[in-house]
């Protein structure tokens, strides 16, 4: 049965779809707009302004003069002798870069040593207990970083619990100076960033198909061989993710080195702050910030590359 049609609708091919898509796209952009505006105003946008500032001349009392200059960028690596203007390597900066890099690597290594077994332990618990252990690791992750750093500070101070106990037992006669050393920074960062290693490794172990491990054992592999040859390759994406998650914030750490490293043992983040405080060299600070950001971006791109290749392989 077909009713008499008063008018035959004619649409161009794709017309209705184009209308629907256009409306959909518009709605999606409109919905995203508030978040995008806020982030552009108070995160992404200022980074672009900083690029401009890195090419300006420092003002006499902080801030900048609007004159083009490459001094900010040059100053990141070399310094000018005050008297004869000769250029030489900025040893102070280089040693700070080196400290940042080495401490970040050490932190990553230490969190691996402690984090992987912890993640393994949690993931192999019975399901009922697993959630509890996971919760225990997650709570410090979300609790205040400054408070956790203060906890470490109080522990390793000259008058702190560790020194006190060691003195009481008689192992030492003088308190060990742990505060304001590279050790303090590394120790503190390992402590505060450890959950960042445990969580992704846990996720990887949790997904691990233990029949594969059983197959390895069945094929005469011992526990360590099975771990090295079967388990480790399978949980590698989680380990890489955890390493990046620890390495990146370590490289840009500010609070922990400031509290535990004091005024002498600076890291990259503290060097940047210095240029906006006592150093009064905003262009240099801007250039250093961009360098740090570039280093972080390289790590993240490396991470994305590796994980996407892992996924393609798997």
């Amino acid at each position: 049965m077909s009713e008499a049609t008063t008018h035959r609708p004619t649409y161009r091919p794709g017309e209705l779809e184009a209308e629907a898509n256009a409306a959909d796209n518009r709605n999606r952009w409109l919905l995203s707009l508030p978040a995008l505006v806020i982030i552009v105003c108070a995160a992404a946008g200022p980074l672009l302004v900083m690029v401009v500032y890195s090419f300006l001349t420092p003002g006499d009392y902080g801030n900048v003069k609007w004159e083009f200059s490459l001094e900010g960028w040059i100053g990141t690596l070399v310094q000018r002798d005050i008297f004869d203007d000769t250029l030489m390597w900025a040893d102070a900066h280089l040693s700070i870069f080196w400290r940042s890099l080495s401490l970040s690597l050490i932190t990553t290594f230490l969190t691996l040593i402690f984090g992987v077994p912890t993640a393994w332990f949690i993931a192999t618990q019975p399901p009922s207990r697993k959630q509890f252990w996971l919760f225990l690791v997650t709570v410090p992750f979300w609790t205040n970083l400054l408070v956790r750093t203060i906890a470490i500070q109080e522990l390793i101070r000259s008058e702190g619990v560790i020194n006190l106990v060691l003195l009481k037992i008689g192992i030492i006669t003088e308190p060990i100076q742990m505060m304001f050393t590279d050790f303090a920074i590394g120790f503190g960062m390992t402590y505060v960033y450890l959950p960042l290693m445990v969580l992704p490794v846990y996720a990887a172990v949790d997904k691990l198909d233990f029949r594969l491990v059983e197959a390895a054992h069945d094929l005469y592999a011992g526990r360590w061989t099975a771990f090295r040859r079967v388990i480790l390759p399978l949980i590698k994406p989680g380990i890489i993710a955890g390493s990046i998650l620890v390495f990146v914030p370590s490289l840009g750490a500010y609070v922990t080195p400031r509290v535990l490293g004091g005024g002498k043992n600076l890291m990259f983040g503290n060097l940047i702050e210095l240029q906006f405080g006592a150093g009064r060299n905003w262009p240099l600070g801007a250039a250093l910030s961009l360098m740090l950001m570039a280093a972080v971006m390289v790590s993240l791109i490396f991470y994305v590359r590796v994980t996407s290749r892992e996924q393609a392989d798997g």
């Binding site: 009713e3 008063t6 629907a20």
Partner: peptide, 15 residues
Amino acid sequence: PPTKGAILLSGSDIS
């Protein structure tokens, strides 16, 4: 929406 063509209900276009 259809890529081409139309849908009618009781003779009127509802596409």
